[in-house]
Design a protein around this nucleic acid. Structure first.
Lengths: 222, 222
DNA sequence: ATAATATGTTATAAATTTATCAAAGAGTGG
DNA sequence: CCACTCTTTGATAAATTTATAACATATTAT
C-alpha cells in the first residue's frame, strides 16, 4: 500500500492512476491529518509526500514520520514544486529517500517508486529456507525435517518461518507475537510457548534447535 | 568506500572532493574496465556511474554489476547528462537506485548519496561488544571467552553486558544494583558479589579482567 | 598483632520462568 | 447446525534461576 499525500486532487489522482496501473495499491490523502489517521489503520509500504500542504508543512510531516516508531523506516519520496537545491537538500537530509520536483514525468515517478521499493524491500523473498535438517519451501508451503514431510498448521508454519528467517537471533515473545500474530500483546500469555511446543514436537530431533533463552525469548540455531 | 565512474577527470575530482569533505572514502575510476579491476580488490559501499563512458556504455556496466553476485546489492546512482525521461526510466528500471542529471548541485548529490546509503545500510544494529578475550553478541545473545562459548544465566548476562559497556569505569554495587536489577537497594547484600563470582568463574582466565576496587565497587579492565 | 571492615564462597530455600495439559473458544467447510 | 480442526487460555507441574544467610577469607587501620 502506497499513500499519496497531496492537496491537489488532480495531481493526486493522476499519480494514483499511474501507480495503480503498475500494480500498486494506493490511497490518496489530502493532508497530514488524513495521513495520521491512515497510518493508525495501516502502515504503508511507502509514502509520497508533497511539501506544500494546506495545514501542516510537508517537512514537518516528514519529521513526525521519522520520529514515529511505526513509520521511521517507511520509504518516503518528496514530490513537490519547491525546486531550489537547498529545498532538496533539506528534504533529503531530514530523512526523505528521494525528492522529485514538479513537473515530473509520470513514468519517471513510477520508476523511482519501484527503485525505492526494490531497495527498501526486506530481503525476505527467499524461496527456500534451510536450517540444519529443517527445510521450508515458501512457494510450495512445504516443510520437512530430515526429509520427512511435516503437516503444520497455519500458525505453526508462520512461526517456524519467522524463526528460520531470523535464525541465530533471539526473538522475544512480544516480538514474535507482533510479527507472527500481527498485534501487540501485553501481559501474560502462553500462546507462543504452546506453539513452540508443538513445533518442537513435530520437528522431532530438529526440535532441539529451537532454544529457550530464559527471560528473553526463543532462538533457532547456534 | 564509494567508487566514482566518470571519464571527465574534472567532474570526477569535483565529486570526489565533495564526498571526501562529507567524510566518505572515495576512488575515482575512468571507465568500466577500471571499475571491474577495483571491484576485484574491494566491493564498494556504493557506485556513482556515468552513462556516457568511452568504451562500454554505462547502462551495460550497470547490467553487469547487477548480474554479478558480489555487486548485485550495491547501491548505484547514475550521474549523467542524458536527461530525457526515457533515459531515466531505463536506468532506474535496470536496477539503478537513483538517477541524477548534470548539471547538478553538488550539495544535492551529497544528500542523495547519504539518503541512499542510509536506506541501503543493513538496518540490523549489529551490537557486539568486545573486551580482551570476552565477546558479547547482543542480537544473538551469545557470550564467549577466548572463543569458547559460555552458558550464562539472565542476570549474569546482563551484569556482564553492563560491565562491558562501562569497561574501564568503576561501578559501585548500588549502581550495578540499580542498573542491572532495576531497583535501588539500600543496606548490605552479597548479591552482586555472588554474581561477580560466578561470572569470574565462567569467564575462566578472562575473569581476572573484572577487578575489585575495595570500598568502591567493581571494574572491568584497565 | 588484633580488631574492624570489606569481600569471597557456599548451600539452599524462595521466586521466577517455562513446559505441559486439558478444556474452552473460534473458525471452517460440509 | 454439526463435525471438524486449529487456536487460545488458565491451571498446574517442572525446571531453572536467584537471593540470602551464614560463614570464610582477605585487607586495612590501630
Amino acid at each position: 500500500m502506497i499513500y499519496i499525500v497531496e492537496d491537489d486532487r488532480e495531481i493526486r489522482e493522476m499519480i494514483g492512476y499511474a501507480l495503480k496501473n503498475s500494480g500498486f495499491e494506493v490511497a490518496g490523502l489530502a493532508d497530514g491529518n488524513q495521513l495520521d489517521a491512515a497510518v493508525e489503520v495501516q502502515v504503508p509500504e511507502m509514502i509520497l509526500l508533497d511539501i506544500m500542504l494546506p495545514e501542516e508543512d510537508g517537512l514537518a510531516v516528514l519529521r513526525r514520520l521519522r520520529e514515529d516508531e511505526r513509520t521511521k523506516d517507511v520509504p518516503i519520496m518528496m514530490v513537490t514544486a519547491k525546486t531550489t537545491e537547498l529545498d532538496k537538500v533539506k528534504g533529503l537530509d531530514m530523512g526523505a529517500d528521494d525528492y522529485l520536483t514538479k513537473p515530473f514525468g509520470i513514468m519517471e515517478l513510477v520508476s523511482r517508486v519501484k527503485a525505492l521499493l526494490r531497495r527498501s524491500a526486506p530481503r525476505d523473498d527467499e524461496e527456500i529456507i534451510v536450517y540444519a535438517g529443517i527445510m521450508l519451501d515458501v512457494r510450495r508451503h512445504l516443510v520437512s525435517a530430515d526429509g520427512r514431510q511435516l503437516e503444520l498448521t497455519y500458525k505453526e508454519y508462520e512461526l517456524l518461518k519467522y524463526l528460520l528467517k531470523n535464525s541465530g537471533i533471539v526473538l522475544s515473545r512480544e516480538k514474535i507475537m507482533d510479527k507472527v500474530w500481527g498485534y501487540d500483546f501485553e501481559g501474560e500469555s502462553r500462546t507462543v510457548d504452546m506453539h513452540i511446543k508443538t513445533l518442537r514436537q513435530k520437528l522431532g530431533q530438529n526440535g532441539a534447535h529451537i532454544k529457550t533463552i530464559r527471560n528473553v525469548g526463543y532462538k533457532l540455531g547456534d
